[in-house]
Structure formats: structure tokens, C-alpha cells
Simulated assay, not measured.
Amino acid sequence: MNTRILTTLAVGGLLTATAACGAQSLDAGDSGDSGAAASAPAVVLDQAPAEEKAADVINAITPDQELAAKAPASLKSGGLKVVSSIGYPPMELYASDGKTPIGFDPALARAIARKLGVKVTITDEEFNSQIPGVLTGRYDFVISSMSDTPERQGQVTFVDYVQAGAALLVKKGNSAGITGPGDLCGKTVSVVDNGSSMELAESYDADCKKGGKPAADILKFPGDTEAMLQVSNGRAQASVTDYVVAAYKAADPKLDMEAISLDGTASPWGIGMKPDNKQLVDSVKGALDSLIKSGEYGGLLKAWNLDALAVESAVVNGGK
């Protein structure tokens, strides 16, 4: 959807991965040419942050030597450059230090990097800046709870990594009596600008108008946190968002919110890359398939209680 790494964060928002004690070398256990190995420095793989729920799974991932050999040279020399939008839990959030990203998307980015035997850096950008950043070559890929849609496929090539649906987030007690899209007519709804949730909200608004009912007032914001704040402060009666995020928020008693699942909204979320970078697309697809086959992908999902989002294989541009 929106809808939005890696162990050390620079002040300007740039996240740079660093090697922790016990980090694994790509050359470990290599039985190849010892002379060649000696001439090239070992790649020390990044360790996951301590507060990352999937840290144990990530840190146990070893490079797939065949995939690593076929990875783009730019990844081997400069690392994997990733963009995301932090602040969309449980997909992307900060650890208690307010700087270190954790969550499923950062976990998968780390896992892919380790599977390819490369280091990784991630920049936190607002949602609308992510695809342009990939197209200009500033980033290798975006992983930010982004729905794989035909429209976006005209800009980037996706490798789909989860299947997720949408939901409404309302105040606990639901005094506005909202149970589904039909109840949004005449109500104020907050969304992330230019995401699939905005498209859903606009379609619900169109249905209201077609049915001769009052239009929905749609408030658009650059990030999910700002959109959900409108429900908390009473400016909006509901926020359209991803179900995983709504459920995560509803589980926090301090937020005093409820999640309402929207049937028929499940769609793939993808890792977006520049279409002409086929070598990178193949590398990311291969890494994800390897993680799925090994069970490591399932371990990442389980750590964040997201088992229901699992895909059986890495599909390219599966959004319809």
C-alpha cells in the first residue's frame, strides 16, 4: 500500500548498515580460489538490531552462493540501496531509540541482502518520493507496503512479497456507526495521499454519489501516522488503511481504536525496481524464492505475527 534499513541511522535520515560482533563473512567456508579470496576483502554481513523481532532468523541467514555470484556488481561494491517510509507498524517502525528501523519490511530487506551476500543501506522517504528515487537510480528498490497495481507497473517492476487487504480504523466504541464502505457517505475519511487506500476511499465516495447519498470528505496526508491522527483527534470518523496496520493499532490499548476489515480488498504488495534493471529484479526474485523455500521467509512473518500474509512464491507484477 502506502503505503512505506540498516543497523545505524545517520541524522539526515540515511540508514547505514554496520557490522556487529559475530557478523558473517560472505567468504566464510568458501572452497574456491584462495588467491582470489585473498585479493578481495571479505564482505561482513549486517546483523539485525536487537529489538528486531525477527533478529534471530535474519542473523542465521547465509548467502546463496549462486545468487550472490549473479547479483549486480553495483550491489557488491556499494551495497543494496533501499528506500522505505518508516512509521507504518508492523511493516515499518522505529526501535525505542527513535532511529533504528525494525518491522517486517526492514526484516525482509535485511534478509534479501544477506541471501545475496551484500550490505544494505536504507533511506526514509515520504511515500510519493519513493518511486522517483528508484527511477533516478538513487535507490535499488522500494519496499514500503506498496500495492502492486497496473498503474504502478507502468513505472516500476514489482516482485510481490505478501498479500494484504484493507481496513477501516475507527475510534473505540465506533460512535459513528461505521461498519463498512456504505457508512462512509457524509463522513470525513483520512488517507495517505497517492496510495491504494486513497483509491479505495475515492471509489467509496463515488459509490455514495451514484447512490444519491452525501459525498465522503477525504483528507489526504503524506504519511499513515498523520492520517490516523485525524481519527484520534476527532477530525475524521474513519481512516482507510491496511488491515495489518489497523489491527496493530487496535491492539494497542493506549490508542483506543478499532479495526474493521474490508472484504474483497486483498492484493499483492511488491518490492519495486527499475524495469530495465533485469539483473536486479532476477536477484531479488531469486532471493525471495530462496527465503520462501528455506522457511526463513515464514520465520520473518511469524516473528511479526503476519503469517496470514504469506505468498507461496515470488511473483513478478502479479497485481491486476
Rank of each mutant, 00 (worst) to 15 (best):
F104N: 05
A176R: 01
V315E: 11
D193L: 11
P214I: 07
G299F: 10
C185W: 01
D97C: 06
R235H: 04
L184H: 00
M273S: 03
A164K: 08
L219A: 10
G79E: 05
D56E: 14
L9I: 13
L300K: 05
D242T: 13
A69K: 15
D140H: 12
S25W: 04
F127D: 04
Y94K: 09
E151G: 03
M91A: 11
G154R: 11
T123D: 11
I58Y: 02
K76E: 01
P132E: 00
A251Q: 11
L15G: 15
T121L: 09
P222L: 03
A236E: 03
M91E: 08
N194V: 09
M257W: 05
G272D: 02
T18V: 13
P275W: 02
S85D: 11
L116R: 08
P41V: 13
T241V: 15
G182Q: 05
G264M: 08
S175M: 08
I58P: 06
G173M: 05
V231G: 01
G212Y: 06
V134I: 15
K210C: 01
A166D: 12
Q279H: 00
Q153N: 14
G165D: 03
S84W: 00
A251N: 13
L67N: 09
G133M: 13
P106C: 10
I178G: 07
K187L: 08
G154E: 12
E199I: 13
A40D: 03
T100V: 13
D27S: 13
Q130Y: 00
G234I: 07
G295H: 02
Y88F: 14
A36R: 01
S267I: 08
R110M: 15
A287I: 03
P275T: 02
V281L: 09
G35N: 07
L262F: 12
D252R: 09
P72D: 00
L169G: 02
T18K: 13
D252E: 05
I131K: 00
A20R: 12
Y139T: 00
S74L: 08
L262Q: 07
A303E: 12
P214L: 14
N305V: 11
G165T: 06
Q65F: 10
L309G: 02
F104H: 10
A95M: 07
N194G: 12
K81T: 12
I292D: 03
T136L: 14
L169V: 10
A314S: 11
Q230A: 09
L300S: 11
K278D: 05
L93P: 00
Y297V: 03
R110D: 08
E51D: 15
T16F: 05
